[in-house]
């Protein structure tokens, strides 16, 4: 099964829409609730990162019997140092974004902790691609 969603950079009122849709789909498919919880955390954080840090993005989701694969492709400033960005506490979020309670530098670590595979690729000045997979059979 394949699903796609768009993300608007800067639009916090819509942040989490795709995660909420995917949660409903996975529930309907009777996916293990523990797996759903992990998928939701990982996708939400990736979605909010596009909203908070990039200009526009797309989400591609593929569900098969073995795994859920999610790819987020955004147009944005990119990440100069991915290793640094992965560290808990590192954030370049603006003061306005921090005031909302985002910008703790915990999003990428949350994604890492809730996925079986994670790959972040980025080109400064162009954008970022986040690929993740969660296995359905352990």
């Amino acid at each position: 099964m394949h699903f796609e969603f768009n993300i608007e950079g800067g639009n916090f009122s819509k942040a989490g829409t795709a995660s909420s849709q995917l949660k409903k789909i996975l529930k309907q498919l009777n996916v293990d609730p523990k797996v759903i919880k992990r998928v939701v955390v990982a996708l939400y954080e990736a979605e909010v990162n596009v909203v908070a840090h990039a200009y526009t993005g797309q989400i591609f989701i593929d569900i098969d019997t073995n795994k859920i694969e999610i790819k987020l492709v955004d147009e944005g400033p990119g990440i100069p140092n991915i290793e640094l960005a992965m560290q808990q506490g590192y954030s370049t979020a603006s003061p306005a974004v921090r005031e909302m309670g985002f910008g703790a530098g915990m999003g990428l670590p949350n994604i890492k902790n809730n996925t079986d595979e994670l790959h972040v690729a980025s080109e400064v000045g162009k954008g970022t691609t986040v690929k993740m997979a969660i296995f359905l059979i352990s």
Partner: peptide
């Protein structure tokens, strides 16, 4: 901190906060 709640809160918990915007509900629901 929203990502802290996202990463560490559990289903059925009451969330005590001073954040008053819509994203709080998105997280509560998810």
């Amino acid at each position: 901190l929203l990502s802290d709640v996202m990463g560490s809160a559990n289903a059925g918990e009451l969330w005590i906060t001073l954040q008053t915007h819509k994203n709080v509900m998105a997280i509560a629901s998810l």
